[in-house]
């Protein structure tokens, strides 16, 4: 069930409100695709965690485990390449859901020349202009005005594209988010703001950091409509995506989606995790896991059997293992790469 911001607003002289989203009814193939993508992200992130532990990945590494339904449901609703996507440092899942080859993502994590940023960006800094994926940003909140800028470019060119701008519950407290909201609504920019509310910003829970902890209401004073969505259910997410994209594509300006979700792992790989109980994490895993839920429904609806789903799991594991082998064996960048691409031109 989605929850809407309390107020409606006047658009172009008439009252208009965001319609109530409905849970998406997928075709059997579509549901299996969602399942496979969520599983790919989960297995990929588990493998990344292992490679980190073995010292093959260094620095900060933020895993997306638990949040898979959000990016899977939203990315399925846009056209990579036509639309634009931008997010923060927790970006591996976004890369995969945007159709980027797991091998070049993993090779970026291991800092190899075959990585999508040639090993120079690492976990937090991945980009694919071809697929309309604009990063991969390490500064909390900085991607929000960048997302509005991508939307500005879509509107300017009149190409019908939309910018999906993902940020966290913690990022939602940065001042530049509200400067952006104002401009985005003022100029009716085609941007979907997606708050991935996984309930914690490092060790700070939403209600310890937010005066208004119902984050879908954060756009109200800018007249931006907000929807609160169950981000642990890929079909709810996909349903909300339809409503949001219809709204934005029809020129009505930005919309805000608060995705209620949860991260199972620590904030990054160095998180002592004393700010929440083990029971809390275990409870969400057992009661709300997006992959388990999809699995149950797929079997119950007769879309696939348990065995068929196990075969998908095996295929995904093999794909991830291959990506990891590739990322381990790929050579490091040439030392000459150190000084390339600082600027585009030579002067």
């Amino acid at each position: 069930m989605a929850r809407k911001a309390a107020r409606t607003k006047e658009v172009e002289g008439r009252f208009d409100a965001v319609p109530e989203p409905v849970r998406h009814s997928p075709s059997p193939q579509e549901y299996l695709d969602f399942y496979r993508m969520m599983l790919l992200i989960r297995r990929f992130e588990e493998k990344a965690g292992q490679l980190y532990g073995m010292g093959l990945i260094g620095g900060f590494c933020h895993l997306y485990i638990g949040q898979e339904a959000v990016v899977t449901g939203l990315q399925a609703a846009i056209t990579p390449g036509r639309d634009s996507v931008v997010t923060g440092y927790r970006d591996h899942g976004h890369m995969l859901a945007n159709g980027i080859d797991p091998r070049v993502v993993m090779a970026e994590l291991t800092g190899r020349a075959a990585g999508i940023s040639r090993g120079k960006g690492g976990s937090m800094h991945m980009f694919s202009v071809e697929k309309g994926f604009f990063g991969g940003h390490g500064i909390v909140g900085a991607q929000v005005p960048i997302g509005a800028g991508l939307a500005f470019a879509h509107k300017y060119r009149g190409d019908g594209g939309v910018a999906l701008t993902y940020f966290g519950d913690g990022a939602a407290n940065q001042g530049q988010v509200y400067e952006t909201f104002n401009m985005a609504e003022l100029w009716k920019l085609p941007v979907v703001f997606v708050i991935e509310n996984n309930q914690y910003a490092m060790g700070t829970s939403v209600n310890r950091a937010s005066a208004e902890d119902q984050l879908y209401r954060r756009g109200e004073s800018f007249r931006i409509e907000g929807l609160q969505v169950d981000g642990m259910d890929v079909l709810e997410v996909r349903g909300a995506a339809t409503v949001a994209l219809d709204w934005v594509r029809s020129g009505k300006g930005p919309i805000l989606l608060e995705m209620k979700t949860y991260r199972y792992r620590g904030h990054s790989m160095s998180d002592p995790a004393k700010y929440r109980t083990r029971d809390e994490v275990q409870h969400v895993r057992e009661q709300q896991d997006p992959i388990d839920r999809a699995q149950r429904e797929i079997v119950a609806q007769g879309i696939a059997t348990e065995d068929e789903l196990k075969a998908i799991d095996r295929a995904v594991r093999a794909e991830v293992a291959e990506a990891a082998d590739f990322a381990e064996q790929a050579p490091e960048p040439e030392l000459s790469e150190l000084v390339t691409d600082v600027l585009a031109e030579t002067y």
């Binding site: 260094g58 620095g59 970026e108 800092g111 190899r112 020349a113 940023s117 090993g119 120079k120 960006g121 690492g122 976990s123 800094h125 490091e332 960048p333 030392l335 790469e337 150190l338 000084v339 600082v342």
Partner: peptide, 15 residues
């Protein structure tokens, strides 16, 4: 080195 710091282990060492 006069470059943004790279991620790759060998490049970081060199920088």
């Amino acid at each position: 080195a006069d470059v943004p710091l790279p991620y790759a282990a060998n490049l970081e060492r060199a920088a």
